[in-house]
C-alpha cells in the first residue's frame, strides 16, 4: 500500500521540495553553525576547557539556562491558565486580552527592556512597593527572570490554544458525571490531553528565553558572576577582540540548547504517541 502511495502521488514534487528544503536549511542554518564550530577549532582543547571552566563563563551559563528554565516553567503554569480563560470563557474585553498576549512577540525587545526597567526600578510603579517589601527586581537576577517571563508568555499560550479549542467540553462533563472532582478532571483528563502541546510551549518559551538579549541587558545590571547572561558575555568578548573565547561560549550554548530541545522533542513525541490521532 504505502509503496504504491509513494510512487503515485497526486501532487508530484518530492525531489523539488526536498532539494529546496535541504539547500535552504544549509544556507540559512547549517553553514553559519558549521562556521561557528570551525572557528572554535582554532582553540586547543586545553584553551577551550580553560575558557569554559572560568568562573565568569560558568556563572553566565548558569544564569542564562537556570533563569530561562525557571521562567519557562512559570510561563507554562500561567500560560495554561491564561489560555484556559481565553478559550473556555466569553467575557467583555476577551479579544483585547487575546491581542495583548501577542505584544511580546511584536514589541522590539529593547523597548520591552527599557519599559520593564522603568517599571521595576527602585522608584518605579511596581519597583517602589516591592523595594519597600525588601525585594529588589531591577539590576538583579530577578529582573532577568521577569524579562524572560515577559518574552516567553505568548509561546505557551499560542501553542496550547488550538489544542484546547479542539478539546470537547463534553469530555469534562463525562469525567464529572463519572464522579471525578474538578481537580481529578484536570489532572487525569485535561492535562494529559494537552500534554504534548504543553511540552512544545515549554520548549519554545525556554529556547526564546535562553536566546533573549535585548530586553535582559537593560534590566539585568550586568554584574559579572551575578546578573550577566551568556549572550552578553559573548558580546563583551567580541568587543575585546577575543573571538575564540566568544565562539567557545557560543558553541556550548548551542550544544546545550540543542540537547535540551531534542530531549523535549522526544518527550513530546512519546506523549503524542499515547494519544493516537482521531
Amino acid at each position: 500500500m504505502s509503496a504504491i502511495a509513494l510512487r503515485r502521488r497526486t501532487l508530484p514534487g518530492f525531489g523539488l521540495t526536498m532539494g529546496l528544503t535541504l539547500s535552504w536549511l544549509s544556507v540559512i542554518i547549517l553553514i553559519p553553525l558549521a562556521g561557528l564550530f570551525l572557528k572554535s577549532l582554532e582553540l586547543s582543547p586545553e584553551q577551550f576547557w580553560n575558557i569554559l571552566s572560568s568562573r565568569r563563563t560558568l556563572n553566565a551559563l548558569r544564569v542564562s539556562f537556570g533563569l530561562a528554565f525557571a521562567a519557562a516553567c512559570v510561563n507554562l503554569v500561567m500560560g495554561s491558565i491564561i489560555v484556559w480563560a481565553l478559550v473556555r470563557y466569553r467575557f467583555p474585553g476577551r479579544r483585547l486580552f487575546d491581542a495583548i498576549v501577542d505584544v511580546p512577540f511584536a514589541l522590539p525587545t529593547a523597548v520591552a527592556g527599557v519599559a520593564l526597567t522603568a517599571l521595576f526600578a527602585e522608584k518605579g510603579w511596581l519597583g517602589a512597593p516591592l523595594a519597600a517589601a525588601g525585594i529588589k527586581v531591577a539590576f538583579t537576577p530577578v529582573g532577568i527572570f521577569v524579562a524572560m517571563i515577559f518574552i516567553g508568555i505568548p509561546f505557551v499560550v499560542r501553542t496550547v490554544e488550538p489544542v484546547l479549542q479542539d478539546l470537547d467540553p463534553e469530555i469534562e462533563e463525562a469525567a464529572g458525571s463519572l464522579g471525578a472532582s474538578r481537580w481529578q478532571t484536570i489532572i487525569r483528563v485535561i492535562l494529559p490531553s494537552l500534554g504534548p502541546a504543553l511540552l512544545t510551549g515549554l520548549a519554545l518559551a525556554f529556547a526564546r528565553a535562553v536566546g533573549e538579549y535585548g530586553s535582559v541587558i537593560f534590566i539585568a545590571g550586568n554584574l559579572p558572576n551575578v546578573s550577566e547572561i551568556a549572550p552578553l558575555l559573548i558580546v563583551i568578548r567580541l568587543s575585546e577582540f577575543r573571538y575564540a573565547d566568544a565562539t567557545a561560549i557560543a558553541v556550548v550554548m548551542l550544544v546545550v540548547s540543542f540537547v535540551i530541545i531534542f530531549a523535549v522533542n522526544r518527550l513530546q513525541r512519546w506523549a503524542q504517541s499515547r494519544i493516537p490521532v482521531r
Binding site: E170, I171, A174, S177
Partner: peptide, 17 residues
C-alpha cells in the same frame, strides 16, 4: 458528581489518551 448518574453522550466523549 454526587448524583451517581450514568450519562452517555451522542459523540461518545471517550478519553482519547
Amino acid at each position: 458528581r454526587e448524583r451517581h448518574v450514568g450519562f452517555v453522550f451522542q459523540h461518545y466523549a471517550l478519553f482519547r489518551h
